[in-house]
């Protein structure tokens, strides 16, 4: 799957779990999602489950660096790395 398609799926998912007061459009792709107020640290768990189910990423095998889940760019890089 292309990076653009992955981005679209990811943004749709983030839109569903974001805090209501912070619009997704206000966040840059390299901006820290927690710091920008889009999500809280609880939502990081939702991102993990999303990546496990939608992209079949097995974190126990790869190890988890929470830093890889805090920007859109980093999450897309993680998906790309897993696909390779």
């Amino acid at each position: 799957m292309s990076r653009d398609t992955n981005r679209e799926r990811l943004l749709r998912f983030l839109d569903a779990i974001r805090r209501p007061e912070t619009p997704l459009a206000a966040i840059r792709e390299d901006e820290n999602l927690i710091r920008a107020g889009l999500i809280d640290s609880l939502a990081v768990l939702e991102i993990i489950v999303f990546l496990e189910t939608e992209f079949e990423i097995e974190f126990p095998a790869t190890g988890l660096d929470p830093g890889h889940l805090t920007t859109v760019t980093a999450i897309l890089d993680l998906i790309d790395a897993h696909a390779r």
Partner: peptide
């Protein structure tokens, strides 16, 4: 979170999400 929560959450991937969360 980094040394206990995430490792437990990831190690229980086959359980329902709520159970994973409570265990973590």
């Amino acid at each position: 979170v980094e040394f206990f929560f995430y490792p437990t959450f990831l190690a229980t991937a086959k359980r329902p999400r709520r159970v994973r969360m409570v265990l973590a």
